[in-house]
Computed example of a mutant assay.
Amino acid sequence: MNTPEFETILLDRPVDGVVVATLNRPDRLNAQTDTMFREFERLARALNDDDDLRVVILTGAGRAFCAGFDLDDAKNLPGLGALGFLHQQERAARGLHALRHIRVPLIAAVNGPAAGGGFSLALAADIRIASPTARFNAAFVKIGLTAGDLGVSWLLPRLVGPARANEIAFTGAQVDAEEAERIGLVNKVVPADQLMSECLAMAELIKANSPGGVQLSKRAIQNNLEVASYAAAIELENRGQALLTRSADMPEALAAFLEKRPANFTGE
Rank of each mutant, 00 (worst) to 15 (best):
L216W: 03
Q174T: 13
G116A: 14
T245N: 04
G144M: 00
N111L: 08
A124C: 09
I221T: 13
T3R: 12
G84P: 01
F257P: 01
N223T: 15
I107V: 14
E167Y: 11
A134Y: 03
D52H: 09
S131W: 00
A93F: 10
L200F: 04
D34G: 14
I129A: 05
D34T: 14
N223V: 13
P162A: 15
T146G: 09
S197M: 04
T171M: 00
Q89T: 13
G17P: 02
R128S: 10
L86R: 10
G60S: 10
I221R: 08
A31D: 08
A122G: 02
D50A: 14
A67Q: 07
F37H: 13
V160M: 01
L10W: 06
G212F: 03
N209L: 14
G172H: 02
I234Q: 07
R63G: 11
A248V: 12
R54V: 11
L47W: 03
S131F: 00
A242T: 11
D49K: 08
I127W: 01
R38H: 09
F140V: 06
A263W: 03
V186C: 09
V56A: 05
A124H: 08
L205F: 07
S229C: 09
Q215W: 00
M196I: 15
Q222N: 09
D51T: 14
R128V: 13
D34C: 05
G68Q: 03
R103P: 02
L205E: 14
M250C: 09
I9Y: 00
L43Y: 03
E181D: 07
P262F: 12
E204F: 00
R28K: 14
G116I: 04
E259W: 02
R63E: 11
G240Q: 04
I102P: 01
T266F: 00
S210A: 15
L185M: 08
I221N: 05
K188S: 11
L159E: 10
G213E: 09
I143K: 00
M36F: 05
